[in-house]
Structures are given as structure tokens and as C-alpha cells.
Design a protein around this nucleic acid. Structure first.
Lengths: 148, 148
DNA sequence: AATGCTTATGAGAATGAGTTGCAATAAAAG
DNA sequence: CTTTTATTGCAACTCATTCTCATAAGCATT
């Protein structure tokens, strides 16, 4: 009877621990949010997260979802993205850095990363006399028709 | 007495001609907006464009600025950008493709372009079975302290 | 330059994502 | 279990943007 917990539950607990370690209160609604976030393998927006959170605990308010997401972002536990059209979307920040490819037809998001591009970005900033703090790279694509 | 017109005026007229050619009505307020856009060398938002337009013709309404910007974007005459924090910002689309470096302290926008990065982006899409339609690359930077 | 068909405009109301003030509530520390 | 202090739910609010609708032009034609 090992691993009684799902990976998502474990991740949620890790995030909670990290918050406590930073002196942030871990409330009932924050735990719910962390669980929802840990289970999500897409990039939901605040309203979708609220919907999912309410399935666990109906009393969680949208305002708290927004406030909590802000806290989690500040703590580096989630990342906020602002893709074209529509509101902010979130994902847990545990995974390594990556950029996003957005399927224009379905809205699906695929993660990718390129060492070369990262390097080139830093070079460009340096040439212009700047230090790169963070960046945003989004590729808006259409699925390529299969060659039959 | 050659070139009585400034380059910005010429550009505004070209854009107007392009609109007329596409069967789009060129109204008094659209002309004003085109002039304002042609003169701008920054990346103003709708409210700033409205402010500048009102200096030329006080009757131009904000709603019309928004409506016109949408039309101009559809016609490929301006480009809309959504940088972090705050509303959409615009620039004329005549210039060649470029990406943006945003100074986090001042909000200044510097344009740059990199053949290598463009190529890498297309490669990444291709590998994932997609066709790149357009992309967004923004570098958020801080000015590097000069080595004295 | 007057006509008529159609689209654009101004003013303000409406929307939608996100935030905030406040009184009630619940973490965490003692 | 009490105190301290941060968090919550709710509703009111902000801010960028869009919409509604009656009026006012474009512009192709007479």
C-alpha cells in the first residue's frame, strides 16, 4: 500500500509546504486551489479554476481565486500567462521553463523550449545594453495537413 | 518648393489610399487617426491616440478611436500589441516585421529583429507538426548598468 | 450639387476581467 | 483556548473595450 497519494496530491502538498515555509497562511480555500492547479494539465483561466474549485468546496469565491492566484504567483508557485484574446491563464510553476505554441483552431497549448532561442534572446538584450528579466514567446499555429 | 509634405503626412495619405482601394470609407476622423498614427514613433494605447486625435479634431470620440483601430488592424494598416500590464498598444504596420524589447522601468519599447530566431521558431513549429501563422516575442528588460 | 443607399459617428449604457472595502472568520502563535 | 493578524465572501467598483441607437456623413449616381 505504498503511494496512497496521486502525484497531483503530492505536488499540492509540496506547494503548500513551500507556502508555509514562506510564512504564507495555508487556508482551506488555498488548499483547494492548489489541488485544482496540481490536477490541471491544461492552462485554465481564473473562472475555470473557480468552477473546478467549487466542485470541491462550493463556498470558494471568485475573489478569493483571484487573490490566491496573485499570492501563488508572487510565491513562484504558479505562472500567469496572457495569451491572445481573453484573460490570464495559469499553470503550476514546478516544471522547467518553457514557451508556448498555441493551436489557433482548438486553443490547445503545447509547451516547448529551445536552448538556442534562449541564448539568442540574451544576446540581443546584451547588444542593446539591457539585462533580460523575463520574456514571452508564443507561437500561434495551425495544424499542418498530413502528407498522405 | 518640392516636398511640401512631411513623411508622416505622406504615410497617412498612403494608408488612406490603401483603405479606399479596399472599399473602406475614409472619414474625417479616420484621416485624423491615420495622421496621428503616422506621426507616432512610440507605441501609444487607444486613450493616448484619442488624446492626440482630439488635439487635431476635438469631436473625435473614444468609441470611434477603438472602432477605427479595429478596422485599421483588419486592413493590415496598424498592428495591435498586448504587452504586459495595461491595454493594447498600436503602431503602423508599414515597417518590416520586428519583435519588441520592453524596458520594465520606463515602459519604452525598442524594436529589433533576428533572422536566426525567426528561423528557429519555424523549425520548432514544423517539428511539432504545425504551421506558424504568427508569433509574439517580447523581452522584458532592465537597463544594464554601464561599466565605468 | 442634389439624391439615396449604406456605413460611420457620438454619447452613453453595458460588458467582462479583475480589484477592493468591509465586517465576519479562521490561521497560527502563545 | 485566547489573541493577533491575515484571509474570506460579498458587493460595489475600476478600467479597457464594446455595444446600442438615433443622427450624420461617405460616396456612387443622377
Amino acid at each position: 500500500m505504498a503511494d496512497r497519494k496521486t502525484p497531483a496530491q503530492q505536488q499540492a502538498e509540496e506547494m503548500a509546504a513551500s507556502l508555509r515555509a514562506a510564512g504564507v497562511r495555508v487556508t482551506r480555500q488555498r488548499v483547494v486551489l492548489l489541488e485544482v492547479l496540481a490536477e490541471a494539465d491544461d492552462h485554465p483561466d481564473a473562472i475555470e479554476l473557480h468552477r473546478r474549485a467549487k466542485e470541491v468546496d462550493d463556498s470558494v469565491s471568485l475573489a478569493t481565486v483571484y487573490r490566491t492566484l496573485t499570492v501563488l504567483e508572487q510565491q513562484g508557485v504558479v505562472q500567469r500567462h496572457a495569451f491572445e484574446g481573453g484573460g490570464a491563464r495559469f499553470e503550476t510553476a514546478e516544471t522547467a521553463h518553457h514557451d508556448h505554441l498555441i493551436d489557433l483552431e482548438t486553443g490547445d497549448v503545447i509547451e516547448f523550449s529551445s536552448e538556442k532561442i534562449e541564448r539568442l534572446q540574451a544576446e540581443i538584450c546584451a547588444e542593446l545594453g539591457y539585462e533580460l528579466i523575463h520574456h514571452r514567446l508564443e507561437l500561434y499555429c495551425r495544424k499542418r495537413p498530413k502528407k498522405s
